[in-house]
């Protein structure tokens, strides 16, 4: 039977870094550009997995490590954002007030988020937000991990690590036209 790659370590390292970047003021806005930190973090996790695994990686390995990275990033993001919540809200309000003074239009969803966040903190809302972001980040992370494996994984099996062919070792998803 083929041995499974060690997914947890790269997912934890890349997920924690991506989660911290996502939770920080200003820098966290990078996720507004195609979930940059999550896709990037998952691709980095796939790169680390490829470096640590002697055998060929498949697209499914990228999906697993990417999804795990997304979940770790969602939890880290929530934990980092929690103490910075008041600061982030104050900052966002100041920016929006300034934009309104200058005659700019406010983003559609942001006012509702600020109003909602201004209310008392609720553990239920926190958990609901965490669940939703974990699901979204897991999907986006899986995509980033698959892209990462396709870009960074070894394309040819090293001779020393070559395993005998068998039903447990299906061919990897090779680049196609």
């Amino acid at each position: 039977m083929t041995q499974r790659p060690e997914y947890l370590r790269p997912a934890l390292i890349a997920g924690i870094v991506a989660g911290i970047l996502s939770g920080l003021p200003f820098i966290g806005a990078g996720n507004c550009v195609c979930c940059l930190w999550i896709i990037g973090g998952a691709a980095v996790a796939a790169r680390m997995l490829a470096a640590a695994t002697p055998t060929l990686l498949k697209a499914s390995d990228g999906a697993v490590v990417g999804a795990l990275t997304g979940i770790v990033a969602a939890v880290t993001d929530a934990l980092v954002s929690l103490p910075l919540r008041q600061f982030n809200m104050g900052l966002a309000r100041r920016i929006l007030d300034k934009a309104a003074e200058l005659g700019g239009q406010l983003p559609s969803g942001i006012q509702d988020i600020l109003n909602q966040s201004a209310g008392a903190f609720s553990a239920g809302w926190f958990l609901l937000g965490l669940l939703v972001s974990a699901a979204v980040f897991a999907i986006v992370g899986a995509l980033g991990g698959i892209i990462g494996v396709s870009l960074f994984a070894k394309k040819v099996q090293p001779p020393a690590a070559a395993a005998p062919p068998g039903p447990a070792a299906p061919p990897p998803a090779a680049p196609g036209p």
Binding site: A59, S60, A63, A142, L143, I146, P170, A173
Partner: peptide
């Protein structure tokens, strides 16, 4: 950019389920 993404996503998720099925078959054998 969006047009290329499903070719990764569907491949990766399908490969995951295929690998899981193959592992299960291999374990049963």
């Amino acid at each position: 950019w969006g047009t290329v993404l499903p070719f990764y996503f569907v491949t990766g998720i399908a490969d995951y389920f295929r690998t899981r099925r193959d592992r299960r078959m291999s374990r049963a054998l």
